[in-house]
Amino acid sequence: MHVIRPYGDTMDDGKVQLSFTLPVSDGARGREAARKLVLSWGFKDCEVVHSAPLSDEFSFYVAYGKTESSVDYDAMVADQASADASMTMDEVNEYIRREIGRKVVVVGACTGFDAHTVGIDAIMNMKGYNHHYGLERYSDLEAYNLGAQVPNEKLIEFSAKVNADAILVSQVVTQKETHVHNMTEFIELLEAKGLRDRFVCVAGGPRIGNKLAVELGFDVGFGRGTYADDVATFIVKKLAEKKRL
């Protein structure tokens, strides 16, 4: 048992910083409403330290609350794709040569109407992101980045054509659950074509978790803070595992 609470400046003081908007005009009554709201969330103590009008009908609050709630840290199970540390680019290339013995083909796209290439580019483009080279730079990978607004149908068709080992589906827009819809359609299409087992299916995006992705039928989901090395490591290990079966 390892009980933890938020830490302000003293162990277990339970201090939490909050900011939010209320659909009322700014003033003493609004601040009282903000304080009562915070207390209603179970905080034992609340100080509204700042308020400001956003318009005649909206106001902004900054508040500090004190919570007595705690969790047992030892009982936590993280939603992570892999507990192991990812290999570097060179290690991945070496692993492919040793364990797979041919080039690994990866196709990626941002699907549906989602126009954001930033995620798939960070993972795939030569340059990569934040000093982690993208998959296009890997000598033992053949990477195709189809860009954004790619229909699921087209992505699957292309992947089959180039004999892909893995398909990366990027989803950035999550408004109105479009990502769930898109990802579900992708897996259903693959299954309808009897192609699901042919590919390692990877989902990614700032608000994609491994849990969600696996629930929707992907092999894995990568969220915020993922680099190409993480994705490449997962794909090649999965392929080696499949090969051994």
Binding site: S19, F20, F58, F60
Partner: peptide
């Protein structure tokens, strides 16, 4: 920017 489409208060903080 990297989290969600702007909340009303995000715009306010930007203007401030």
């Amino acid at each position: 920017e990297a989290v969600h489409t702007p909340f009303m208060m995000d715009r306010y903080l930007a203007v401030e």
